[in-house]
Write a protein that binds this DNA or RNA. Structure first.
Lengths: 340, 340
DNA sequence: TAACCTCTTGTTAGCGTTCACAGTCTTGCC
DNA sequence: GGCAAGACTGTGAACGCTAACAAGAGGTTA
């Protein structure tokens, strides 16, 4: 047995030999174990530095049974909202010393979600964050390996899994009440796709605000979050000739579409029709006119979900069946005004 | 030594015992080794199924020295462009059977980039994709562990690392030539931040198109990709009273800002000033007016980069110092027209 | 019959770390 | 001086898998 192949990166035993100690002492230095003589510690550290040693986290994961990796299942992560959520999660996880492994799905269905979870579980993640904005996604939690810590973001609260979400209902209330406060008789609503929990929450908040003010609740128009669907909804609103004076649109992209439909036909916003969006995408401030909207704090959602998940991991997978709600914020701009 | 704890998930040895074979035979079945009797194989598979066995990929990674995980270093991944690039990479990697571990940076500096690469290397990734849109990011490649396969996306081609990128220069040429073709005497340019390679490429293409047409090259205005900076640039363009008839803006978000600045002052687009953007974000089609722009194929960039990276991994880290260019596409809409 | 394949299976030894335990060397105190 | 308590360090055995080799069964050939 000759000397270890020089081209292979050094392992703990190499450091041990170089420092004249046992591999275990090296391990102790690396793990900040208290009982190591200061002189020994510096000798080991010096050897580590000299050899350019880096600890093999895979071997470590094998024995500790912790990979310090979290899995994230996302959906449509090129959209601003989901992208920001995933980004918030990633930042928070890294700040806590965890790696993040991401699976981004194109379509949400229970099977795809289940596959994604299995896939991440196989990889040995310590916990999973599922961004589960659709009803069908929530069911996928049933297939979680037993004892696997998990948290749902923007999901519903049925199973055992804790949920972190923005207060969609409250946000929609803010939007609707703002419009009512400006003197509008009622508020129309362009909602997101019906199987999305966020869409549902926003519709619910809108309806609740109207009802508690004793106003008539108009029929909702439904879009798919895209600017195009907003445009189509806008054209349908135009067809209602004069009835409509205020619209709460379930996201900013659709609001952009509505804006274009109205502007094309010479309808002035906000003089003739007021519009409120949801999300506060970076573009919203520069729409024509700048869009009044509801801002979601995606960073807080990310931080909270990681916090809940790590707490769960700390307790060994036992979860506390909690629901954490992040409040949204009203952002006033120029797409709303009082009548006349 | 009693029977293995029931609560612990089964390992290969458990399957072996259940199927009445050795663990090695189980391994062979799992790895599709040819020399296993059909009857044995089914017995093993049946045992795997019955016990709900899942192979421990961490242990596997330790011995094979392959984690089947790729690292991605991204930057500002909430923006549409970067988010789409990362998404394309993730899709392509997963299709090839690789996990994706992502680090998303907020600021690009050599140190942060270096840390991110170290971080991923520690985790034992098989290769790294660096989305390196800034000059300073490119330098971080020097700190790549030797033998670590890597590919740069939207980076420059100096070091040993292959690069995959969109043809920014060509895209900018398309935009500029389109405007010249409409009869504009020259084309103004709102560029991205100067240390961004993409910004540089777009400026270069714009300049080249003007020069080869023998036109004067106006002073460029510089933004930071944000709608706000576009708005400010727009105001400065307005101050040039009448000189400006056509503008190539380096991305769609800034183009939105320019659009707002012009519209606010009653300048008509495209009647008085024509505008072309870059990226084709989903909103662009619904700007007022719908934005003529250059579309980047982020999916292709992702697929290509993974392909290059996997080829490199297959060769054992030896790289081929290539540069792969993805062509952009001109998308005609309503923000441009000929003069008068 | 012996020699030599091929097919199939089992045995043993790692991969690089941490954990449990067993040492050895101080130090303090009677 | 002796002896226990503590500080420090080393030894061996896991963790769950694959690689390398060995070995038995069965067939073919000389």
């Amino acid at each position: 047995m000759g000397p270890r192949d020089e081209r292979r990166s050094p392992v703990m035993a190499d450091v041990a030999k170089a420092a004249g100690v046992s591999h275990q002492t090296v391990s102790r230095v690396l793990n900040d174990h208290p009982n190591v003589r200061a002189e020994t510690r510096t000798r080991v550290l010096e050897a580590i530095d000299r050899l350019g040693y880096r600890r093999n986290l895979v071997a470590r994961a094998l024995v500790t049974r912790h990979s310090r990796t979290l899995g994230v299942v996302g959906f449509n992560t090129t959209l601003y909202g989901p992208a920001s959520t995933v980004d918030g999660i990633e930042q928070a996880a890294r700040a806590a010393g965890y790696f993040v492994s991401i699976v981004s799905l194109r379509t949400i269905d229970t099977a795809g979600m289940r596959d994604a979870i299995d896939y991440l579980a196989d990889q040995g993640v310590d916990g999973i964050v599922v961004v589960a904005p659709q009803r069908s996604a929530a069911r996928a939690f049933e297939s979680l390996p037993r004892g696997m810590p998990a948290v749902a973001v923007e999901g519903q609260h049925e199973g055992e899994v804790p949920v972190v979400s923005v207060d969609q209902v409250g946000g929609a209330r803010l939007a609707t009440e703002h419009l009512l406060g400006l003197g509008h008789e009622t508020v129309w609503h362009v909602s997101g796709p019906s199987d999305w929990l966020e869409a549902e929450g926003r519709t619910e908040g809108w309806r609740a605000a109207l009802e508690s003010a004793g106003r008539t609740v108009p029929e909702t128009l439904t879009g798919d979050w895209s600017p195009r669907s907003g445009y189509l909804a806008g054209r349908r609103l135009l067809a209602m000739a004069g009835q409509v004076t205020a619209v709460f649109v379930a996201n900013d992209q659709m609001a952009l579409g509505v804006l274009r439909a109205l502007t094309e036909e010479g309808v002035k916003v906000p003089e003739q029709i007021s519009i409120v969006g949801f999300d506060d995408i970076p573009e919203a401030e520069f729409f024509l006119p700048p869009l009044t909207t509801i801002r979601q704090d995606f960073g807080a959602v990310g931080r909270n979900s990681i916090e809940v998940l790590l707490r769960q991991i700390g307790r060994g997978g036992e979860c506390e069946r909690e629901r954490l709600i992040v409040p949204p914020r009203f952002v006033a701009r120029s797409s709303t005004s009082s009548l006349r």
